[in-house]
């Protein structure tokens, strides 16, 4: 490690306030290029950061050439940002690719999350099928679908999207400009409101 690298690790201004004692997180999942990092950057009080995580994935006959059976180790990048919500609490936003082969990474990430924003681009709806399947079948994580409205993308009424994506009637669909902070925060508010409707949060006992 050279001195330039060492200097970069000294970021006193990046510390949370000393009163912060609690952190929560939201996942931002979706295909490459859908706007995850853009949305995170719009909300974050720090420049989005990136970490690499090593993951072991099942390789189902993907690479017969290398003669390896069963498992391969690869790295996956995770972009994230943070925003202070109160003197006690900070929210972290973790962006991850949603494909099944990254499941090991983001199933661990989903643990303890407030919920997930599933970002979609209406030009490539099929890219989100796998993410939605994984979330519905394998987690209890509440999620909202965020349509990142690119200028040249077709605009569909919410109910057509709901049908095309086979979403439950209660799953929120929010149209968003990921570059706009108010718009991105609004998507997060919709997600948390949705999470609060989950049966486990209802005060009436069954």
């Amino acid at each position: 490690m050279d001195s330039a690298t060492s200097d970069q690790t000294s970021k006193p201004g990046q510390h949370l306030a000393p009163t912060i004692t609690r952190s929560v997180k939201v996942l931002v999942v979706g295909a490459f290029g859908v706007g995850k990092t853009t949305l995170i950057g719009a909300v974050s009080e720090i420049e989005p950061l990136r970490t690499e995580e090593m993951i072991t994935t099942a390789s189902v006959g993907v690479d017969p050439v290398d003669g390896l059976q069963g498992k391969t180790t690869t790295t996956v990048a995770m972009d994230f940002g943070r925003v202070t919500l109160s003197p006690e609490m900070a929210l972290y936003l973790f962006g991850t690719p949603g494909q099944r082969r990254f499941w090991d990474l983001w199933s661990g990430l989903a643990d303890g999350a407030v919920g997930a924003l599933v970002m979609i681009d209406t030009r490539h709806l099929e890219d989100s099928f796998e993410v939605l399947d994984q979330l519905e079948l394998r987690t209890k994580t509440p999620f909202a679908v965020v349509v990142n409205q690119f200028p040249d993308a077709p605009k569909y009424p919410a109910e057509r999207l709901r049908a095309a994506l086979d979403l439950l009637p209660q799953t929120p669909i929010v149209v968003c400009d990921a570059r706009d902070r108010t718009s991105a925060v609004n998507a997060l508010i919709t997600l948390v409101e949705h999470a609060l409707t989950f049966p486990m949060f209802q005060k009436v006992l069954a």
């Binding site: 929560v24 109160s86 989950f198």
Partner: peptide, 26 residues
């Protein structure tokens, strides 16, 4: 370790309410 995480699937309701308040005040 500052934040005390239990093995909850979801954070407790009072935490979600604080998150919502915080987001609305951003």
């Amino acid at each position: 370790i500052r934040s005390n995480h239990q093995a909850h699937v979801l954070p407790p309701r009072d935490v979600l309410e604080k998150v919502l308040d915080g987001l609305r005040n951003l």
